[in-house]
Amino acid sequence: MKTREMRFSGAGGQGLQLCAKIFSKAMTGAGYHVSMSQSYEPTSRGGLSRADIVASGETPDYPLATELDTLLILDQAAATASEGIIRDDAMVIVDPRRTKNPPEGNFKVIELPLSETAIRVGSERVTNVVATGVIAELSEDIEVKTIENVLRAISPKKFLDMNMDALQAGVALARGVKAA
């Protein structure tokens, strides 16, 4: 089982902790041992917020991220926060609408209209769910169906349809990346 190190980052209030929670539930369901950590600022909204997953076949020696293979950046506040710990073969998924200066390096930066897609689906608030669909589709070892089941289980009833639409819109964006 390949060790995965994923980071969901942006500004406080963008649902990044929830992203990590969805992936960690799905991945433990698939047999991973997951360590999920977080960092946020002592303000209720805004400021840098991130949630990390380190997952492997057994409890990792060090539970915090040191070599990211997947990085999501939803806001400029998080653009430089992961410097030095992004693998060369990592995929860095960026929402350019809110991230004017994405990080530069040997890794692949994939710019996708995540928040615009969310607005089209119904609300900018589901940008995190669009991103979840993208990452699930681009991750070989994570089934979109498993993510969908977790999301269905934790969604409040009135947001269920919008969340499902946002997830599928994310999957469609990722398929576009794959086809390109």
Binding site: Y32, V34, S35, S37, T59
Partner: peptide, 10 residues
């Protein structure tokens, strides 16, 4: 804090 807020599969 890092351990208090850490979630692990145990």
């Amino acid at each position: 804090e890092s351990l208090g807020h850490l979630v692990e599969t145990v």
